[in-house]
Design a protein around this nucleic acid. Structure first.
Lengths: 224, 224
DNA sequence: ATATATTAGCGTAAAATATACGCATTGTAT
DNA sequence: ATACAATGCGTATATTTTACGCTAATATAT
C-alpha cells in the first residue's frame, strides 16, 4: 500500500484576561496562506507522540508553555489543504495569564491574541476548528473543572464567576453560582484578601486538585 | 520534511440484541496479531475522507452498512503498532438488528459479535479504544437520541427501556423513564400493537427525527 | 467626617425536576 | 375461570434549581 497522507497537529489555545476569552493565532510565514492568520500547528515527527508534537510546535511558534491540553477532533477532508493531503489532529488548550504576557512579547508580529468575537479571516479549515473548540470549551467547563487552568493559582471568587460568564456568553447569578461552586468542595478558601479598586475586598480561593480527584473517584461529579 | 507515518481508521460497532450490547470484532488474517481478534479497520486511501474509509473497511471486512457513525478519538502513541508508526482515527458506530443477521452470516469465521462483558483478548491498543467507546456510548445516549439507531424503526416502549438499562448497566424505573422519554416529545405512538409471549400487548413507537431537529433548533435538549 | 457607590457574601422562599412507589389494565397460559 | 405477566397511568415526597432580598466591607466623592 502506498499512502502519501501527511499528518499534522493544530492547537486552539484559549486565554482569559480582562473578562474576555482570547485565542492565540500565528501569521503564516510560508505558502499556502502565506501572511494569513492560522491556528498554531505543524507536522508530526515520526518518533513523537501527538501531544509531544503539539507542545513542540507551540513552543516553536509562540513560546508558550501549555497548562491544559486535550484532543479536540481530527480533520480529514481530502480538500482541506489545497496542495497535499493533510490530516490534522486538532487539540484545544488553556493557559494562565502569567504565561500570557510571555507569549505576546516573544514575537508580536507572528503570534497574537484575538478576542473570540473579533477574529480575522483564517487559513485552511481553521475557522471550523476554532468554532468546534469554542463549543467544546463551553460544554466542558460545565462538567470538568478546567476553568481554573485559565485563572491564577489564587483568585477571588468573582474572577471565577466572570470567567464562566465570559465563556458561556451569558449572565450568571452570583449567589447561586457561589453556592453551587462552593458546594462542590473543591475550593480552598485562603486567609488572604485582595482589594482591586472600590468595594469590599475579596477572599482568595484555590482549586484543590487532590480533593477533586478524590471526589471524582467516589463518583461525585463536578457540574455547574 | 520526510514523514513515514501511516494513517488508519478503526470502527467500534455496537449492536443490541436480546437485552445485551455487543461489539463487532474481526479475526486478523495477517501479521501483526495474525489470528487474533481486533476492531475492524484499515488504512485510509489518499483520495477518500476518513468517514468514507471507515465505511469502506466495514463493508469489506464485515459486510455491514452502518446506521450511525461518529468520530471517537485519534490514537497516536508511537508504540501502538509494533512494526510501523500507525496513527489511527477511531470511530464508533451503531447498527440496527436488521443489519445484524446480515453481518453474522457473511463470514462467521472472520466477523463475530461479542457481548461487551465477554470480550476476547484484543490486538494493538484495541482494548483501550473499546473501553473509551463504551464510556462514550454510555455518556452520549443520555444527551443525544442515538439509542434509536440500535432498535428497529418501530419498537415497543419496553425495548427502549431495556436498551437503556443494558447500555448504562443499571436498572431503570420503568414509569419514570417513560414519563421522561415521552415528555421529550420525539416519539410518535402508533396504532399498532405487538404481543410477545405473555402479558399485555404493547403499543409501538417510532422516533420522529424531524421533530427532534426542530426542538433542538429551539434550544430544547434531549436528556435522559 | 459623612454620605454614597461598589463589590463581596449569606440566606430564604418558590418553582421545577427527579425519585419512589401503588395500582388498574389488557392480554396470554393453564 | 383463574393465575400470571407485562403495559400503562397517577400521586406523594425529596431534591435541585431559580429568583431575589439583605447585610458587610471598603473606596471615593462631597
Amino acid at each position: 500500500m502506498q499512502q502519501s497522507i501527511k499528518l499534522s497537529v493544530d492547537a486552539v489555545v484559549f486565554g482569559y484576561e480582562s473578562e474576555t476569552i482570547s485565542v492565540l493565532l500565528i501569521r503564516r510565514k510560508y505558502d499556502p496562506f502565506k501572511g494569513k492568520w492560522a491556528i498554531p500547528g505543524g507536522f508530526v515527527l515520526d518518533s513523537e507522540s501527538l501531544e509531544e508534537a503539539v507542545e513542540r510546535e507551540l513552543k516553536e511558534e509562540t513560546g508558550i508553555k501549555i497548562n491544559y491540553l486535550e484532543q479536540l477532533y481530527t480533520f480529514g477532508n481530502p480538500e482541506r489543504d489545497p496542495r497535499n493531503r493533510v490530516v490534522s489532529v486538532a487539540y484545544f488548550g488553556l493557559i494562565k495569564p502569567s504565561a500570557f504576557k510571555l507569549a505576546a512579547s516573544t514575537d508580536a508580529e507572528e503570534a497574537q491574541w484575538f478576542t473570540i468575537n473579533k477574529l480575522p479571516e483564517l487559513s485552511f479549515d481553521h475557522a471550523e476548528i476554532l468554532k468546534l473548540a469554542i463549543t467544546r470549551l463551553q460544554a466542558k467547563i460545565t462538567y470538568e473543572p478546567i476553568g481554573f487552568e485559565l485563572l491564577d493559582t489564587k483568585f477571588p471568587f468573582s474572577d471565577l464567576e466572570k470567567l464562566y460568564a465570559a465563556v458561556l456568553g451569558r449572565e450568571i447569578d452570583r449567589r447561586n453560582f457561589r453556592k453551587k461552586m462552593l458546594g462542590l468542595n473543591v475550593l480552598d478558601e485562603l486567609d488572604e484578601k485582595v482589594s482591586k479598586g472600590s468595594g469590599r475586598p475579596a477572599n482568595l480561593f484555590m482549586f484543590n486538585k487532590n480533593r477533586y480527584f478524590k471526589l471524582k473517584k467516589e463518583g461525585i461529579i463536578f457540574e455547574i
